[in-house]
Design a binder for these strands. Structure first.
Length: 418
RNA sequence: GUGGCUGUGGUGAAGCGGUCAACACGUGCGACUGUGACUCGCAUAUUCGAGGGUUCGAUACCCUCCAGCCACCCCA
């Protein structure tokens, strides 16, 4: 193997690109229906953007970022997630001045220096959506409904919605203290990681998969019991809206997020089909992020969905299209006629293939079959002389006579389409 | 960053010290006398991830490295 791709960076080959396009098209359709407009931002940003938004002490910032120093001695980073860059653009271009309420979506590659495994790569792709400027839980509910709609539209029933509330800067400290006290009493039962976490980030212990920790934290205090009244109201409203629209969900009070900027509502679309990677999409509210990045005090909520994971769930369904017609020629003498026909048909929107290499008729027909062409037509001396040819339906071999003109062949293809 | 497993052609794989490196699929060409799919024939790895070592001999045994996968951590 002479030269290979960088570890954790994958090629999306022709046999799977159709599936990717399908996913992207469905997402765009659903998001645009909901009033979201695409925003395209760079894949490279100043490192500071991420350390300030995602959080200095998070794993993403501590060990997973692709950070480089460029030739101008600036520290730059390949974006590990999309929200930070979108919010930077929102602030930089003062999008809020014209309208603080913005509904934006983005799609593209993200980069995280992690050990690759199933459903996790160093370059991976996300489609995400954000709503700024709305405090009302209506926005939370719309985002969740939109996410649910996407999975319904694409035909997946598997990922299910889990929601939680992380409270706000008002009520979260009290909860952290309560949780830490609880953990202190059971310190001996916790795994080493959790012992460390109980001091640095006690919420994380709730997410630990070590059986001893699961058991030890079973009776841990719930965030939901410690929400301040406005957070509590907010969360009940989100649930009420979800109920109003009959959106299925479950509450997971132990759900934790990896990014520091989340407040109040957080959620995940989870599946049991992807091994250790259960989250297909995740997001939440980030009421403090925009001001934290130097913008006005505008709230936000959004999510990101992992395309590799969605593609994995879709399996190997085939979304590629096939040629309408294959034109075979008996000899090189007929290729001019065939080429002119192909050109005319292509210009009229019919997908045509023909032989490029002067192969035998048998080889050409085999190729027509392999490409899954719907129809074929053979042009030889007789056809050129008479101006008529046999139009053959490949599926069952049914044949019909046609004139060798763009209009008539086109009519044959269109007619047989019904 | 840590651990486990694996590395044979385009693919799925047999082979476990001496084989023409099996078989299947795929691909290409051809036969069935201007038409694919079925059937049949032929072709398709001087080479077994790379580099060392043991041996008369290594795809097979040992070492090192590299790569992939899965898991941990964490996450989409």
């Amino acid at each position: 193997m002479a030269l290979t791709a960088v570890k954790g960076f994958n090629d999306i080959l022709p046999d799977e690109s159709g599936r990717w396009q399908h996913i992207e098209q469905m997402a765009r359709r659903v998001f645009e229906l909901n009033g979201f407009a695409e925003i395209r931002v760079p894949v490279l940003e100043k490192t500071e953007l991420f350390s300030r938004s995602i959080g200095d002490a998070t794993d993403i910032v501590e060990k997973e970022m692709y950070t480089f120093t460029d030739k101008g001695e600036n520290s730059v980073t390949l974006r590990p997630e999309g929200t930070a860059g979108v919010m930077r653009a929102f602030i930089e271009h003062k999008l809020y001045a014209a309208d603080p309420v913005a509904k934006l979506y983005y799609l593209g590659p993200m980069f995280r220096y992690e050990r690759p495994q199933k459903g996790r790569y160093r370059q991976f792709h996300q489609i995400g959506a954000e709503i700024t400027g709305v405090h009302d839980p209506l926005a939370d509910a719309q985002v969740l409904n939109m996410l649910t709609a996407f999975f319904r539209e694409i035909g997946l029933t598997e990922p299910t919605l889990q929601i939680n509330s992380l409270g706000c800067p008002e009520c979260r400290p009290a909860y952290r203290t309560a949780l830490r006290n609880f953990l202190d009493e059971r310190m001996a039962l916790l795994c080493d990681d959790c012992k460390r976490r109980s001091a640095t980030n006690p919420l994380r212990t709730l997410d630990c998969k070590v059986p001893g920790c699961v058991e030890a934290t079973a009776g841990a205090p719930s965030v939901l019991d410690h929400l301040c009244s406005s957070c509590d109201d907010h969360f009940s409203s989100v649930r009420r809206y979800l109920d109003l629209s009959a959106t299925p969900y479950s509450i997971n009070a132990r759900m934790v997020r990896g990014l520091d900027y989340y407040t109040r509502t957080t959620f995940e679309m989870v599946t049991g089909l992807l091994g250790a990677q259960s989250a297909v999409a995740a997001g939440g509210r980030y009421d403090g992020l925009i001001s934290q990045l130097g913008g006005p005090a505008i709230p936000g909520i959004g999510f990101a969905m992992g395309l590799e994971r969605v593609a994995l769930l879709l399996g190997s369904q085939n979304f590629s299209s096939c040629p309408d017609l294959f034109i075979a020629t008996m000899g090189v003498g007929e290729r001019d006629v065939a080429f002119r026909l192909m050109d005319g048909l292509l210009k009229s929107g019919i997908r045509v293939e023909m032989d490029y290499e002067g192969k035998s008729l048998k080889s050409q027909m085999r190729r027509a079959d392999k490409l899954k062409s719907r129809y074929s037509v053979v042009i030889g001396e007789n056809e050129v002389a008479s101006g008529r040819a046999t139009f053959k339906r490949m599926a069952d071999g049914a044949q019909a006579d046609t004139a060798l003109t763009v209009a008539e062949i086109r009519a044959c293809v269109m007619k047989s389409e019904q």
